[in-house]
Design a protein around this nucleic acid. Structure first.
Length: 431
RNA sequence: GGAAGGGUGUCCGAGUGGUUUAAGGAAACGGUCUUGAAAACCGUCGUGCCGGCAACGGUACCGAGGGUUCGAAUCCCUCCCCUUCCGCCA
């Protein structure tokens, strides 16, 4: 959530930025509640002060009847006022939580994803001298993809992936972990992009794939419950990204500045209900209820978080370049960056089979929006305390596999394996 | 799943109704001493919220949430988690 102080100090700014992101929040009502809350709080606290005073005066002595009687009356009044305060505060908090993070000035203002801005394209779209196929056709012909049986067992948008495609996927995870774990690679990317950052490598992590509701609420990621699967009879929800269970790792903890940045590259299976996408992207495995993803997550201080975000984008580009996949980079507009984001970048791979770019990566600049509700703080070297910042970004999902299949297909219906993945594939050149 | 014991500040740990504004120790930070360091000694040392320019004052927080009481870390209830033993099992 955002800082209530920002709303108090600059309500017009908050209104404007929220509107840019397409959120309707009643800021005036929030400020009204904020005032009500303050007044009630002061009343309650002075009643409590009197209660403590009475209690204090009885220490060690014989309780005086008048004071006990006053305490009794006080208790009744206090309980009534506390009721009002609690009601006001919970409405206040709910409204405050509904305020989106403020987009940075560099974020293009737009009302639909069509207004995202292409800031870079990389690589040449491949030319084919044969009739090309899309990834679904190739995968099905190769026996890599079985949607019918997936549907029989778990329903639509669940699939069996099989054979060499699975080997290729696993190669992708290993490659991603190796790149993000390479200090020299990070060093080079940091230098090339003029970033002022540590080259500490990303530590691989296998986090839980489920979390309690309290945790999802703190990360601001359960804003769309209709997208999240719940486990029946348990207070547990399936994560929709490793980010959902890595970001809250330091829930209610204080980090030392000296140990920052904390960088993780985590792998989990992700689950998404994909409500509202019926009939969209039903071919192949572009959009599934269950997919695998390797995700970067960093905890930094406020001073380095924006550079950290840019580093993550640089890593993403590096990964795509190493695979040789043509892509474009989008600076997402205010409507598309998402509620917790202050900035967001997407990378889209060129898909010859669809004759268009499709999203493979997202990088989220969250600033202190998550950590304020997660209470993850940093003890600075000078002893002061501030909120930590979080960043997250895709390293690889399964979608780059689609890019590989479509861009590197041959007339024979095979797929050429990118050079960098061959060491993980027993040296094979194609599948 | 069954039984027992526990969850206290950055860490360890005392505390079973009002002498606790959470003892004591460690770590950390500042200082004295020292050629320097260590040791010793002195001092500082939780977080949120509200008020205040500030100094500071008030309030809440001892796993979470309720309850009893004039008053709860302490008593009661529910839940969560951890440890040990048993059972089961990748």
């Amino acid at each position: 959530m955002i800082d209530i102080q920002l709303v108090r100090d600059n309500p017009e700014f908050v209104k404007e930025k929220a509107t840019q992101k397409g959120y309707e929040v009643d800021i005036d009502r929030l400020l009204q509640l904020d005032n009500d809350r303050k007044e009630l709080l002061q009343t309650v606290e002075s009643l409590r002060a009197r209660r403590n005073e009475i209690s204090e005066s009885m220490k060690g002595g014989k309780p005086a009847d008048e004071l006990i009687e006053e305490g009794r009356l006080l208790k009744v009044e206090l309980s009534e006022r506390e009721g009002y305060l609690e009601a006001t505060e919970s409405e206040w908090l709910e409204l405050l939580k509904s305020v989106p993070n403020m987009p940075l000035d560099v974020v293009p203002v737009g009302s639909t994803e069509d207004e995202n801005v292409v800031v870079k394209t990389w690589g040449d779209k491949p030319q084919f001298n044969f009739e090309i196929k899309n990834h679904a056709e190739i995968a099905e012909a190769k026996g890599w993809l079985d949607k019918d049986r997936g549907a029989k067992i778990a329903g639509s948008r669940f699939v069996y992936l099989k054979g060499d495609l699975v080997r290729l996927e696993m190669a992708l995870w290993q490659f991603g972990v190796d790149v993000a774990g390479s200090e020299s690679t990070l060093q080079r990317l940091i230098a090339e992009n003029n970033l002022n950052l540590s080259s500490k490598p990303f530590m691989p992590v296998l986090p839980p794939a489920v979390a309690k509701k309290e945790i999802f609420e703190a990360t601001g990621r359960l804003n769309k419950e209709e997208q999240t699967y719940k486990i029946e009879d348990e207070d547990l929800w399936l994560n929709a990204s490793a980010e959902h269970t890595i970001a809250p790792m330091y829930y209610k903890e204080i980090l030392d500045e000296a140990e920052l940045p904390l960088r993780y590259i985590g792998y989990t299976t992700a689950f998404r209900r994909e409500a509202g996408t019926y009939g969209k992207d039903t071919e192949g495995f572009l959009r599934l209820h269950q997919f695998n993803k390797l995700e970067m997550e960093s905890f930094t201080d406020a001073q380095t978080s924006l550079d950290e975000h840019l580093l993550m984008v640089a890593i993403q580009e590096h990964l795509m370049q190493q695979l040789g996949l043509p892509y474009q980079v989008l600076e997402k507009c205010t409507a598309d960056i998402g509620r917790p984001n202050a900035k967001g970048v997407d990378i889209e791979v060129w898909l010859p089979g669809q004759d268009r770019y499709r999203e493979t990566h997202t990088a989220d600049y969250i600033s202190d929006f998550q950590t304020r509700s997660m209470q993850t703080k940093v003890r600075k070297n000078d002893g002061t305390l501030e909120l930590a910042h979080t960043n997250d970004a895709t390293a690889f999902s399964q979608r780059p596999l689609i890019g590989i299949i479509e861009n590197f297909q041959t007339a024979e219906g095979d797929v050429i394996i990118p050079d960098v993945l061959r060491p993980y594939m027993g040296g094979r050149e194609k599948i």
